[in-house]
């Protein structure tokens, strides 16, 4: 078993941030159709164990490539850059100020039990995330500016953390 293949190679996809989602889905399903443990439930022990390892590997690769943040982080690591390593935490002041404002909006919406405000915040954050993603595509695939991409990725993480907190707030309101 070749566990050294990278996630892109595993699915026969080019190692770029821009990704054909339908092709990824198809390749993932084709692979699972062959190696999923359900295919080997009546097989010998060795095949059952391998099937579980392969299916685990396919799931990990698919989950990594499917999510834009994970995909960009993985791509950078393939290029030798640990964008999320501790120490890489300095962020521009204006960005941090904007973060504080988002957080305040979230706290206000929760305090007021205001579902509409929460939904508005979520839409705005999704637009923000989409902006970071299109920037990542440019920096990673076109400009090949990995340092800039790493900085954008860190911003995307802030946005995604906020989105997760918004989701948590929905649960609390519901």
């Amino acid at each position: 078993m070749d566990f050294n293949k990278n996630h892109f190679d595993l699915f026969g996809l080019p190692a770029t941030f821009a990704l054909d989602g339908a092709r990824l889905d198809q390749a993932y399903r084709d692979l699972q159709a062959e190696i999923h443990p359900d295919r080997f439930a009546h097989a010998g022990e060795a095949e059952q164990r391998l099937a579980m390892q392969w299916a685990t590997r396919a799931n990990e690769a698919y989950q990594t490539l499917k999510k834009p943040f994970e995909r960009a982080d993985y791509l950078l690591r393939l290029r030798g850059i640990e964008a999320m390593a501790a120490g890489n935490t300095a962020m521009p002041m204006d960005f941090l100020m904007a973060q504080m404002e988002w957080r305040e909006r979230l706290a206000e919406a929760v305090a007021a039990q205001d579902m509409t405000a929460l939904e508005g915040l979520e839409r705005a954050l999704r637009a923000e995330a989409a902006l970071h993603q299109s920037r990542l595509a440019d920096e990673l695939d076109v400009q090949k500016d990995d340092a800039a991409a790493a900085a954008t990725l860190r911003k995307l993480r802030f946005t995604e953390k906020l989105l997760a907190d918004v989701a948590g707030a929905y649960d609390d309101l519901a």
Binding site: A27, D30, L31, A33, E34, I35
Partner: peptide, 8 residues
């Protein structure tokens, strides 16, 4: 695995 990817 090869079969899955070639099919693809």
């Amino acid at each position: 695995v090869k079969k899955a990817l070639t099919g693809h």
